[in-house]
Design a protein around this nucleic acid. Structure first.
Ligand SMILES: NC(=O)c1ccc[n+]([C@@H]2O[C@H](COP(=O)([O-])OP(=O)(O)OC[C@H]3O[C@@H](n4cnc5c(N)ncnc54)[C@H](O)[C@@H]3O)[C@@H](O)[C@H]2O)c1
Ligand SMILES: NC(=O)c1ccc[n+]([C@@H]2O[C@H](COP(=O)([O-])OP(=O)(O)OC[C@H]3O[C@@H](n4cnc5c(N)ncnc54)[C@H](O)[C@@H]3O)[C@@H](O)[C@H]2O)c1
Lengths: 212, 212
DNA sequence: TTACTTTTGTGAAGAATTTCACAATACAGT
DNA sequence: ACTGTATTGTGAAATTCTTCACAAAAGTAA
């Protein structure tokens, strides 16, 4: 019934999926069943109900869940019923792609500062932002009250910038650099490692062939 | 002792980590213990041994694993002891970042074709490649014997291109579009959803604060 | 050869996650 | 009000994943 601490990683991923599905319903006032939600995700109705039950019971037996209500509840559970101030560190190729990706801003992740160590890039205008020197990092993080940092810089600078971000009071890190960051356990880090995703594919293909 | 089918997703992710760690050892002829490997990953020695034991036993009691041997074995398990022919679909911001990312090629993922539907982009040269029209898709996939496809196009075109890729004989899909692709179960799909990663962060931060 | 140290490989125990299955309940129709 | 249908919320069972713990090597040193 109540938030019993320790929600599993996979549950959180599924909650994101449910929210994404619900945002597909432009429908006002409708309802959705755990069965329907399961079909759109890639899971079972029982799993959907169990996932949601960790946070309370907001369905109606015989009817399902109110789309509007469930969507709001999921937004609040996932912390996207507000906006987050994000800084981008590394104004390279992946940094640019992320910066220009509209889905971030539309979900409430607001890029309020960009840093790069390359003197050629410092001072460049990116939309409403100017690329800043890492020398200003702590000052800017504090002044703008940055909560999240996206690390899109080469691996050799990532650990240092992660530490500086934590020391400056940043609350979470999305890391694209292919290294395991060492940060205090209370600061969550999510790693994105695309080589690993490709390896997962080639693993599955290779294994599959061994069966045949 | 033998590949007993059904290796868990988390095991595969850890195998990738182990391989990445081992590639950090330029050391020729050395050995590494499960303890050391665990420290570099973010796991336990028992987990390392259990993961490896699914594929045979290639350590020496009292000594550990031969770095060279284990690295080769992991490469072969993950299917990266060969090169893979990859096509990129969608020559946009994320497509460009991926195309120029050197770690892919160096791991054996070779981008051999690029497709985009934008007439402005078709014909553009990208390094050694030329952006092609999706009209040529099936022909090119077959001629170049493409095995993997990276979908970096907007969500509304992704399902169609996934299906065409499968029909053309592609064996795996790395999908950046924020939709759940519908493909036959024997074709592995890996999804990359960055909004979900950010939501995982904001969830953890939000939850953490509720404790305090 | 024997004693000692180290570290693997693995069954068994323990923990976590998913699935099952069903009583509880909400509404619709008559 | 009653009957029928749909669908939740949730203990319990089943399954999957992780950790434990220790006998079985393998090397080293005396
Ligand atoms: N391009 C991709 O598709 C891709 C995919 C996955 C992971 N990555 C990883 O993302 C990171 C960035 O990749 P990229 O392709 O954008 O590289 P890039 O070389 O295009 O950009 C990196 C940027 O970081 C800047 N930088 C370097 N040190 C810095 C520091 N200390 N502080 C601030 N900025 C600094 C550089 O000046 C450069 O502008 C790398 O770690 C890479 O491994 C990239
Ligand atoms: N930019 C990011 O950081 C980011 C992050 C996560 C996910 N994504 C996702 O990745 C995908 C691409 O994002 P982007 O930012 O590169 O977008 P983009 O608009 O920069 O590029 C998309 C490209 O795909 C092409 N395209 C459209 N339909 C096509 C078709 N049927 N066949 C071939 N090409 C086609 C377009 O012409 C365009 O060049 C989107 O689904 C987006 O949601 C992007």
């Amino acid at each position: 019934m109540f938030v019993s601490r320790k929600i599993s990683e996979s549950t959180v991923r599924r909650l994101s999926h449910y929210l994404r599905s619900l945002e597909g319903f432009p429908d006002i006032g409708g309802t959705v069943s755990s069965e329907e939600l399961a079909a759109r995700g890639q899971t079972t109705a029982a799993q959907v109900r169990k996932d949601l039950s960790h946070f309370g019971s907001f369905g109606k037996r015989g009817l399902g869940y109110s789309v509007d209500q469930l969507r709001d509840r999921l937004r609040s559970i996932l912390g996207v019923d507000r906006s987050w101030r994000v800084a981008l560190v590394g104004a390279g190729r992946i940094g640019l792609a992320l910066f220009e990706y509209p889905a971030f801003r539309s979900r409430g992740y607001d890029c309020v500062a960009i840093f790069d160590s390359d003197p050629e890039k410092i001072g460049q205008a990116w939309a409403d932002q100017v690329v800043r020197s890492p020398d200003e990092f702590e000052k800017v993080i504090n002044e703008l009250d940055v909560e999240l940092v996206i690390l899109a810089l080469p691996a050799d600078g990532a650990q240092e910038m992660a530490m500086r971000a934590v020391d400056a009071g940043v609350q979470g890190i999305l890391n694209f650099a292919p290294i395991r960051l060492n940060v205090p356990p209370e600061v969550p880090v999510e790693d994105v490692n695309l080589v690993m995703e490709l390896e997962a594919l080639s693993f599955q293909i290779t294994q599959g062939e061994q069966d045949a």
